[in-house]
């Protein structure tokens, strides 16, 4: 059950009415609204937010690795509505190796952000046609922003010389 405080927010109330059960949790801290979305319904929720609630801009997509906690990843979406002058953060909790639906069908601009998230965290986005590495070389092994990826000494370390 969602907290009263969250349901009082128009974004959460409308989204909850249009896509029932999509919001699993919410928080309002430092003036920023965060909604946790059921990963299987992220596209549905985003489509509603874009077309009905006028969140026309996708500011960014990224992820946070909470290793060794489970579920391990949080995929974070930052949206902006120019008309309402509001910002909104969506989050999806995801286990390692689990895919999430791509939102490139909602915002074309999601493409590079999803590729970057894949490159850095190894999270796969189902339905993204060009999901391949974007910043690192094609033959790179591993995903550097994972917490278990070493900061120093990937394959070679001058400290051992």
């Amino acid at each position: 059950m969602l907290a009263e405080e969250i349901l009082n927010q128009p974004e959460a109330r409308e989204l909850n009415a249009a896509v029932p059960g999509a919001i699993t949790e919410g928080s309002l801290a430092l003036g920023e609204l965060t909604l946790w979305i059921d990963p299987s319904r992220i596209v549905e929720a985003c489509r509603h937010l874009k077309s009905v609630q006028k969140y026309v801009r996708l500011s960014s997509i990224t992820a946070v690795d909470w290793h060794p906690a489970a579920p391990r990843f949080e995929v974070v979406y930052h949206l902006q509505s120019i008309e309402r002058n509001e910002r909104l953060r969506l989050k999806c909790r995801l286990d390692d190796g689990v895919e999430i639906d791509s939102v490139t069908g909602v915002w074309r601009g999601a493409d590079w952000y999803e590729r970057e998230t894949f490159d850095m965290f190894g999270i796969r986005f189902r339905g993204n046609a060009t999901l391949k590495r974007i910043l690192l070389p094609e033959d790179w092994e591993g995903h550097p922003l994972r917490k278990d990826f070493p900061v120093h000494g990937y394959k070679y370390s001058y400290q051992n010389e």
């Binding site: 960014s60 930052h78 601009g109 590079w112 970057e116």
Partner: peptide, 28 residues
């Protein structure tokens, strides 16, 4: 628009800093 998404776990080092940089967004 340049935006920093900063996550702290209460320690003296950032847990995660993501930079939404305008050039990346525009170049797409």
């Amino acid at each position: 628009e340049i935006a920093y998404y900063v996550v702290s776990n209460g320690t003296s080092k950032p847990y995660r800093v993501h930079m939404r940089t305008p050039s990346f967004g525009n170049l797409q």
